[in-house]
Design a protein around this nucleic acid. Structure first.
Length: 223
DNA sequence: GCGACAG
DNA sequence: ATCTTGTCGC
């Protein structure tokens, strides 16, 4: 139903085209539900497992949990993560009703070589505001933020344009890399991520999705 | 040509 | 992501 299993050359070209459609402006009126997405894999069976956990916002109560798994053939190639995880994410979102007003992905948004990390690519296809929250850097340059919670510094591309923020979500922990996916800007992305951080380095949506996908994977692989 | 390199 | 025990620090 989409352009997925493409040759690398064509996938790269598609990213360049799609990145032109990314909108870095938040227009929605109010956010009632936020979703966190994460995936896990089983090398032996070539299966990819995906969990989407939907939270009320800003209370952050778990509202719904969705799980789905299918075969994954596209390899992990830095810069092309969405071609590996995209098919399963699009599939699981077909089941999600109602759609959340915002989605947080484990990975980059526009902080990407071609300005189309997985959060941007998925946000665009789903037409839902999205944010990328990665545990490490893929692309760009930055200065280390101070060690206190809330400290941040901009992440820039190699033409000095800001593409995201390196954010310290807790005291003395490694910072996370925040970048807008689609239909949202840098500052608003950081504001929302901070509202999703409670007791841990990783914001609740993706943190709980990670725990959920591990449980789901174990349950499926057992039978 | 040599590193860097989301999950 | 996954593999994989103990261990350092709050």
């Amino acid at each position: 139903m989409n352009n997925w299993n493409l040759p690398v050359k064509e996938a790269v070209e598609l990213q360049k085209q799609l990145s032109k459609k990314i909108v870095l402006k938040f227009s929605s009126r109010k956010i009632n539900y936020i979703a966190g997405v994460d995936l896990g894999y089983d090398k032996k069976s070539e299966l990819g497992f995906c969990s989407v956990v939907i939270f009320t916002f800003p209370d952050l109560d778990i509202f719904q949990i969705y799980n789905y798994h299918q075969e994954v053939l596209f390899p992990y190639i830095p810069g092309l993560l969405s071609f590996r995880e995209g098919p399963i994410i699009i599939k699981i979102f077909e089941k999600i009703i109602p759609k959340p007003e915002l989605i947080i992905f484990d990975g980059q948004g526009i902080a990407h070589q071609r300005k189309l990390g997985i959060a941007s690519h998925m946000g665009l296809l789903l037409n839902i505001p999205s944010i990328g929250c990665a545990k490490s850097k893929l692309y760009g340059k930055y200065e280390e933020p101070a060690s206190e919670k809330g400290s941040r510094s901009y992440l820039y591309d190699y033409k000095d344009n800001p593409i995201g923020v390196v954010l310290r979500t807790k005291d003395n922990v490694k910072p996370v890399f925040i970048s807008p996916g689609h239909l949202i800007g840098i500052n608003k992305s950081v504001e929302i991520i901070m509202k999703c951080v409670t007791k841990y380095r990783i914001p609740e949506p993706t943190r709980i999705a990670d725990i959920q996908v591990a449980k789901y994977k174990e349950a499926i692989l057992q039978n």
